[in-house]
């Protein structure tokens, strides 16, 4: 089964049909997908700005992550779940252009960057508590995160423009 077959199967499933034909649920799902960016994208941008030393420099990175993590996870869960539901509703036409596959690729890059950051700094108490000076690699991780998540949002907004069937 290739990616097109998978998306076709999702589209033809009971869930895909129900979502695509729903007058209210589909717009609601799309609305939540967009507005949950305030928690997911908005908070990750704030953390990235902190890693770059731009926002809230007096707050240790570890404290910021501890205080915002539940809300970021909640935001990303809402964005991710509604994104999957939109994939069910829209099916293989998402694959008609390079935009959506590229969006998935950039999400993968952003996720790998986040995993690397956690692996590298997740237990580094000197860095997390601010006892150690900000390190270049953490700033680079922040810049990659900022660039990749911004690209994901831009690509998401471009999808309808590159496929007249929406």
């Amino acid at each position: 089964m290739n990616l097109h077959d998978l998306f076709q199967a999702m589209y033809e499933s009971c869930l895909g049909t129900a979502l695509a034909e729903s007058l209210y649920v589909y717009p609601l799902v799309e609305g939540i997908h967009l507005l949950s960016l305030a928690f997911s994208f908005g908070l990750i941008v704030l953390v990235d700005f902190r890693l770059l030393g731009i926002a809230l420099p007096s707050l240790p990175v570890g404290e910021m992550l501890k205080q915002l993590r539940p809300w970021m996870i909640g935001g990303f869960t809402a964005t991710f779940v509604t994104g999957i539901l939109l994939m069910f509703a829209l099916g293989p036409k998402l694959l008609a252009t390079f935009i959506f596959p590229l969006k998935l690729l950039v999400i993968l890059l952003a996720a790998l960057n986040a995993i690397w950051f956690e692996w590298k700094f997740g237990r580094d108490q000197d860095y997390l508590t601010g006892r150690k000076d900000p390190v270049v690699s953490a700033k680079i991780a922040g810049a990659i995160s900022l660039a990749s998540w911004s690209t994901v949002v831009v690509l998401g907004r471009l999808i309808p423009y590159f496929d007249g069937s929406f």
């Binding site: 967009l34 960016l37 305030a38 928690f39 908005g42 908070l43 941008v45 704030l46």
Partner: peptide
């Protein structure tokens, strides 16, 4: 971007 700048 404006929506995120207001909401977050």
């Amino acid at each position: 971007s404006g929506i995120v700048l207001i909401l977050t």
